[in-house]
Design a protein around this nucleic acid. Structure first.
Lengths: 146, 146
DNA sequence: CTCCTACCTGCAAGTATTCGCAAAAGCAAT
DNA sequence: ATTGCTTTTGCGAATACTTGCAGGTAGGAG
């Protein structure tokens, strides 16, 4: 599994310390084939090394996001998920009525990325982000209702 | 100020009850010229009618978002803001390193809206959403650092 | 291999947000 | 104006997340 080592090397190169806790957390989200909540990361880390504190999980996840080695998406109503940058890029379309999540292709926003960089000098993390809206079914319900 | 009445009428038409609390909260975010945090809405409502509970603020804000009468944006690190749909649409570009927020023009995502509707039948709330990334300065720091 | 120091972590307390339930109050019909 | 049914609210407790601080440890210098 190469990419947790890549992340660790990147952090070392930037002058951060590699603690057992950080290694465990990086490994946890790298090996998960899906996104994980903070609580799920905590459970997985606990399994291998009990005693790691939940505050460390939150701090380290935020730290990895800040360093660009993980992504954070707020799906609304308390659902916050984390994933490594190696996960195939995609968009979460979250219905604000029924909560359904559709995963859309990232190609849709390739043009947006370029424009944001050119016009605002902003390098957007568009690999893994959430959009709120209404799914097809809920749109229909809304129309008939009112 | 017409648009808080519009929101109230919409809710009534959909069969929801108009309580004094709801009216106050709708008025609060409608009259604010900026986005507000839940705490700011609470403060403003308290000013006029002490006794409204903070849980009601959270519940009502979520309710308004679900009904499409307000928007919610998570700017990261605990910053969650709400705004009415009447606010001019725009994108928040939030730097994940330094926290700076740039407000970008909504025109950039007009095409995306159409594509999401056509390909996924999804009506995205693109009037007021947040994107995480790196601002120009932090990109430069990253490049020189490593 | 040991020391040193700044960076990290654990702990416990603090803040933000949500939930369950009983009481209160819209509003439609009478 | 009153009744009745259902939705909302307030309250307190539970959960989710953050912060301050003191002690622990990674990793460079000697």
């Amino acid at each position: 599994m190469p990419h947790c080592h890549t992340s660790i090397e990147t952090l070392r190169r930037r002058g951060y310390r590699i603690t057992p806790q950080r290694a465990l957390i990086i490994e946890a989200i790298a090996h998960s084939c899906r996104h994980m909540t903070a609580e799920e990361v905590f459970a997985r880390v606990q399994q291998r090394t009990p005693g790691v504190n939940i505050a460390t999980i939150y701090r380290t996840l935020d730290f990895l996001v800040k360093e660009g080695l993980a992504h954070r998406a707020d799906l609304g109503s308390g659902q916050v998920i984390y994933a490594t940058i190696q996960h195939g890029p995609h968009i979460h379309l979250v219905c604000r009525q029924c909560g359904t999540v559709i995963e859309a292709d990232e190609q849709l926003i390739a043009a947006l990325r370029v424009q944001l960089q050119q016009q605002y000098g902003f390098a957007a993390d568009l690999q893994h982000f959430a959009l709120s809206g209404l799914c097809r079914d809920c749109q229909e319900r809304f129309e008939t209702e009112q």
